[in-house]
């Protein structure tokens, strides 16, 4: 019979692995994507999937018998997840809007050209 501790560890491993992949792939997109507006989307992957999955993994690990105040740790992690959920889109929108107001033009269309450019 598998103890619940081992099951917890296995689930945490899966969650941490998925979250780690999301964080690294998001950062990779931040480096690879061609212009400012497309990079915003890559940063969004890190901010949502990456961060929330990592926090979920820590939340699962908080219930391992190592810690005697599991519920407080879990509550703090829940608060952290909620803050991340509410604040990260505001920050991303602020950056996008600031760039838009200064007059950044986005690349457009499948051939990635600035609007109005000739051949």
């Amino acid at each position: 019979m598998i103890g619940w501790e081992l099951a917890l560890d296995i689930v945490s491993w899966i969650v941490f692995a998925t979250g780690g992949v999301a964080v690294v792939v998001g950062a990779l997109g931040l480096v690879r994507f061609p212009d400012f507006y497309t990079r915003l989307h890559a940063a969004g992957v890190t901010d949502t999937a990456g961060a929330e999955l990592m926090i979920l993994g820590m939340l699962l690990q908080a219930f391992s018998p190592e810690y005697d105040n599991s519920w407080q740790i879990a509550g703090k992690l829940g608060l952290l997840a909620l803050l991340q959920f509410l604040l990260s889109p505001v920050a991303t929108h602020a950056i996008a809007h600031a760039g838009w107001m200064v007059g950044f033009k986005p690349l457009a269309g499948a051939d990635l050209r600035y609007e109005g450019d000739g051949e």
């Binding site: 931040l30 400012f36 915003l40 940063a43 990260s88 920050a91 991303t92 600031a98 760039g99 950044f104």
Partner: peptide, 14 residues
């Protein structure tokens, strides 16, 4: 641009 740097800085902060 400046905004790419702010975006990267915010991402590093997260």
């Amino acid at each position: 641009s400046l905004y790419d740097r702010v975006l990267a800085g915010n991402s590093i902060g997260t």
